[in-house]
Design a protein around this nucleic acid. Structure first.
Length: 714
RNA sequence: GGCGAGGUAGCUCAGUUGGUUAGAGCGCAGCACUCAUAAUGCUGAGGUCGAGAGUUCGAAUCUCUCCCUCGCUACCA
């Protein structure tokens, strides 16, 4: 290991956070593999080392998506968050993700904490206050967050695009771009009204971020995390609004006069502070001091080490925005590492909550209450640490059957069975450190225990959980090899003393296995510890020792099976369950679509205008003389039109519908007197009229017969 | 379009500052063994290291171009 990379040994204590789940849905295996399982494994390891560690998490309960859904379903936001907070909290508890506290951002303590944070930055004059125009719902007397505006997507004509994003074509939007914008609350057309917000000038921290991340974290942070940060910093940072016009969230702690009324903190300011408030609540419950886990200490060497476990979608908030906030505040420590995972796919497709393509944690725990370690094993062994990976039920089956049952379970079983058979459950009392007549292979195996201990430790310190678990299994493989090579069953009659050595070594190896697997597979570790009569509170420092079984005079219990095989029927039924869900969901979506089509045969007609208004519009017939793609733009074509004697240039967002060659020579209608606009460096004069067919494909509006270019359309 | 991360045996992944016949686990084939949950051990087959070009005595590893996957981002009158 490179000496420049710090490990837990270099710190007095560690603050571990796992991404706050949004209280708007359940947990699936992608969430677990991404953040919670590695975090839990790491924390269990630190606890075994008697390291001072706090592990916090909680429900993220604010934000527009929850209010929007509440309004839609005619219930209160509180009903939604209470439902999902309970579901999520129980799923974690049942599965054995062992937080010190699972808190909520809807709590009073969190409100105080977040407001204190905001006030502190406000008093330091960090924010810039800006006023601009935003959509306002006059009926509900409320400003509308981007998510609250629904309208027709200018790209794909989807009628249900949100103001921030169209979920059909995936393009990011701003609310003013939507065609026929409507308020999600009243369904009325919103009006633009000015409002003030407090912005965090991220760009002021660019220099500092370059030093802190680009210069000092290159070898320490995962490539994907570092690269993502670099990408953002290089692209240029901008101001970001830290407040929203909403009635759901932490109120902005400023006076009416300053325009704070009806405003709450932006959910991405609010949520990470949830880690702090969770720690405060834990400290209250357990009579501890939260400050030593979050604030800079008098002596820098006493600072806690902050580690955020998240998925790759959260990198920018945890690596840039939240650290900027912490830095701006001044009193707080900064993240030491952010081991973000990539995504877990499922049976060849992306996991999707809306399409119900997921394995839900609460359902898994219910269906397989005795197979928690099995899922921990599979998810860790395929953890998406370096790239996206895939879970299939066939992998689940083969990993468990071939590795847990055949390699690990079988080794433990044969060792325990043999000791019971030969010695009535009493491990031969041999001091392996002083024994003189050990074979070279014996010594190699004993050395192997120490080597594997070191390898597992190093991998855990570096957040390489997949590799760490692999090294645990290597020790089990070594055990199997040892028995197969020494063949004690052949020697028992002729050389019983030699067999005593072999069984002692096998037993100590098994005890070491129980320690090394403990962060990964806690229940299995307990089972082995019980079988071997080891103390329950196994410490990491014991690993590598060769006299673990002497504490109880070597008396062990009867063998019990650690794992059982997964049958084909189980795999088939789980796949069928997924397929059924998917088919049902697709049908629902299709029905919904048909319903919409029936109730909404044509898009709503715009408000009435007078003839004078129409006469302002100058539409001409023009011929496309040339068309070429615009550099650095996927969707734009630069089109040259011939209009009478003149030529004009128009940039049109049709590159995904037409190739340049196929449209040259066509006659089209051209809106001539539209104000010019610059797009991607090209000045667009007017626009070309298009209509969309039922398949979403654009077609030109052209004169029925060729006419002279420049002819007016009346 | 820009940026980032990936593209190595059927599958999941290692491959350190370029160096002899490219590795591991699982799967597959053969052999051995029987203490063990028909488990285990050994041996073997399997790769033109995404494609092409270049630098070099020598490249999976460095440079350039291109292709594919995932993510972020720009553009959209």
């Amino acid at each position: 290991m490179s000496p420049s990379i710090k490990t837990s040994k270099d710190f007095k204590r560690t603050t571990v956070t796992a991404a706050l789940p949004y209280a708007n849905g359940g947990l699936h295996i992608g969430h677990i593999a991404g953040a919670y399982l590695p975090a839990d494994t790491y924390v269990r390891y630190l606890r075994m080392k008697n390291h001072d560690v706090i592990f916090v998490c909680g429900s993220d309960e604010h934000g527009a998506a929850i209010t929007l859904r509440a309004k839609k379903e005619g219930i209160t936001p509180k009903e939604i968050i209470d439902k999902y907070d309970t579901l999520i909290k129980n799923s974690f508890a049942d599965f054995g993700i062992d937080f010190d506290i699972y808190h909520r951002t809807s709590s009073e303590l969190h409100k105080e904490t977040a407001q204190d944070f905001f006030t502190s930055l406000y008093e330091k004059d960090i924010f810039s206050k800006q006023t601009n125009e935003q959509f306002y719902d006059e009926k509900f007397e409320q400003f509308l967050a981007d998510r609250y505006i629904i309208g027709t997507c200018p790209n794909c004509q989807n009628d249900n695009a949100f103001g921030d994003q169209c979920e059909k074509c995936g393009s990011t939007l701003s609310p003013t771009e939507l065609i026929n914008p409507k308020s999600a609350l009243s369904g009325q057309k919103p009006v633009l009204k000015s409002t003030s917000h407090w912005f965090l000038p991220l760009q002021n921290y660019e220099k500092w971020l370059r030093e802190w991340i680009l210069d000092s974290k290159k070898d320490e942070w995962r490539a994907g995390v570092y690269g993502q940060c670099k990408s953002w910093i290089e692209q240029g940072l901008h101001e970001r609004s830290m407040t929203r016009d909403l009635d759901w969230g932490v109120p902005v702690p400023l006076s009416k006069e300053e325009g704070a009324e009806g405003k709450v903190l932006y959910v991405w300011l609010d949520a990470p502070i949830g880690y702090v408030s969770a720690t405060k609540q834990w400290a209250k419950n357990t009579n501890n001091d939260w400050k030593k886990y979050w604030l800079k200490q008098e002596n820098e060497a006493d600072d806690s080490r902050l580690i955020h476990f998240i998925g790759k979608d959260n990198i920018v908030f945890h690596c840039l925005i939240f650290p900027i906030i912490l830095k701006a505040h001044g009193d707080y420590i900064l993240p030491e590492n952010v081991p973000a995972n990539n995504f877990l796919n499922l049976e060849g497709d992306k996991i999707s909550t809306s399409r119900e393509w997921a394995v839900w944690l609460n359902e898994y725990v219910k269906e397989f209450p005795t197979k928690k370690d099995e899922l921990r094993y599979v998810l860790t062994s395929i953890a998406p640490e370096t790239k996206d990976s895939e879970f299939t039920w066939a992998i689940f089956q083969s990993r468990i059957n071939n590795e847990l049952v055949d390699t690990l379970g079988n080794f433990v079983n044969r060792t325990v069975v043999l000791i019971n058979k030969y010695y009535k459950g009493e491990v031969p009392n041999i001091n392996l450190s002083t024994a003189k007549d050990l074979t070279d292979f014996d010594k190699e195996v004993l050395e192997g225990i120490k080597i594997q201990t070191e390898k597992v430790s190093q991998n855990l310190e570096k957040f390489n959980f997949r590799d760490g678990l692999f090294e645990v299994m290597e020790l089990a493989r070594l055990g199997n090899k040892y028995l197969a090579t020494t063949e004690p069953w052949k020697l028992q009659k002729t050389e019983p003393q030699r067999v005593e050595q072999i069984m002692k070594i096998s037993a100590e190896l098994t005890a070491n296995l129980a320690i090394l697997m403990r962060p990964f597979l806690p229940t299995t570790s307990d089972k082995i510890a019980n079988m071997l009569n080891l103390e329950n509170d196994l410490k990491w420092d014991l690993a590598g020792n060769l006299d673990l079984l002497e504490s109880n005079n070597g008396k062990i219990n009867k063998a019990t099976l650690l794992f059982e095989k997964i049958e084909d029927e189980l795999v088939e039924s789980q796949i069928k369950k997924l397929d059924d869900n998917k088919a049902r969901k697709l049908k629902e979506i299709k029905e919904q679509k048909e319903e919409n089509a029936q109730t909404n045969p044509i898009a709503e007609i715009q408000s009435e205008i007078q003839f004078e208004d129409f006469s302002k519009i100058d539409i001409r017939v023009a011929t496309i003389k040339n068309a070429e793609p615009i550099k650095k733009a996927d969707k734009l074509l630069k089109i040259t039109l011939e209009v009478g004697e003149q030529e004009v240039t128009v940039a049109s967002g049709i590159a995904e519908h037409f190739s340049p060659e196929e449209i040259i020579g066509k006659q089209v209608c051209w809106l001539a007197n539209l104000a010019p606009r610059k797009m991607r460096g090209v000045v667009s004069q007017g626009m070309i009229l298009l209509a969309e067919n039922e398949k979403g494909k654009l077609v030109f509006v052209s004169p029925e017969k060729m006419v002279n270019t420049g002819a007016q359309v009346k």
